[in-house]
């Protein structure tokens, strides 16, 4: 059984079936890509996984615990981190503070009133933040205003923030969308490095086939709210059903 089990999940928006009986199992410590044409329901599925949307039917279990009905912050505390299509970071905070927030959340839970302590006294957390920034080569930018980072650096920072919490499952929604080729390649390298260094499961939603084929071990192709095929990446390319879905989706 996989670390994440999606069973019979359906979601309607009015008359539109955005998700229709979706069944996907994601194996532990694998990189699983979910691809599909525009409007296939990929983002909707992701929003169900993180607790932002409640499905009309079906179940989602993570390490044998149901995720349905839980708030996004509760799901995160179970070990699920999410990287957004446009990086979501704390723009008004420094790069360093951006690293501190997830570390405090990881150690202290959803709320703690540490209003009289100083940050400098939290040596373990400060050290962990610096180590993580170093790992993504951003240590020299630690005092920069996060909003002033380049798009690629924002992405790196967001990933570093997620990874600092040692998540078991990392969800990525089009992590390279809108990126230049060089930034895309950087991101691929970063993800490979993450995959190889840690015990982590990744689920990637992606349009860019280059990214999918360089990273994924399994690929699920979705169209019109339903998974069509699930297979290894080499075999997905030649699958006639997939080509039809993409042509249909774009035509």
């Amino acid at each position: 059984m996989g670390i994440l089990e999606i069973k019979g999940v359906s979601k309607r928006f009015g008359g539109l079936k955005a998700l229709d009986d979706v069944n996907i199992s994601i194996a532990e410590n694998s990189v699983h890509a979910i691809i599909g044409p525009n409007g296939a329901g990929k983002s909707t599925l992701l929003n169900v996984l993180v607790g932002k949307l409640v499905p009309d039917a079906g179940s989602v279990t993570f390490e044998n615990q149901s995720l349905l009905g839980r708030k996004p912050y509760e799901i995160n505390q179970l070990g699920v981190a999410r990287v957004f299509q446009t990086p979501e970071i704390f723009g008004d905070l420094s790069v360093f503070e951006n690293m501190l927030v997830p570390l405090f959340a990881h150690r202290d839970g959803t709320f703690r009133m540490h209003a009289y302590e100083t940050i400098a006294a939290e040596r373990d957390i400060v050290a962990a933040a610096e180590a993580m920034l170093d790992e993504v080569n951003m240590l020299e930018k630690r005092d920069m205003h996060a909003a002033s980072l380049s798009r690629g650096d924002k992405r790196r920072l967001e990933m570093a923030m997620c990874l600092s919490q040692e998540p078991k499952l990392l969800l990525l929604d089009e992590p390279t969308a809108g990126m230049a080729r060089a930034d895309t390649n950087n991101t691929i390298d970063l993800l490979k490095q993450i995959r190889d260094k840690r015990d982590i499961t990744m689920a990637i939603i992606e349009h860019d086939m280059h990214v999918v084929f360089s990273l994924a071990e399994r690929v699920t192709v979705m169209a019109q709210g339903t998974p069509l095929v699930e297979d290894a990446p080499e075999r997905i390319k030649g699958n006639p059903k997939v080509q039809e879905a993409y042509l249909g989706g774009h035509g």
Binding site: Y73, E88, L93, A105, F111
Partner: peptide, 15 residues
């Protein structure tokens, strides 16, 4: 200050 800047990120950071 994190609340002021980005509540979405906060939620998905477990806070």
């Amino acid at each position: 200050r994190a609340v002021k800047t980005n509540q979405t990120r906060m939620n998905y950071t477990g806070l």
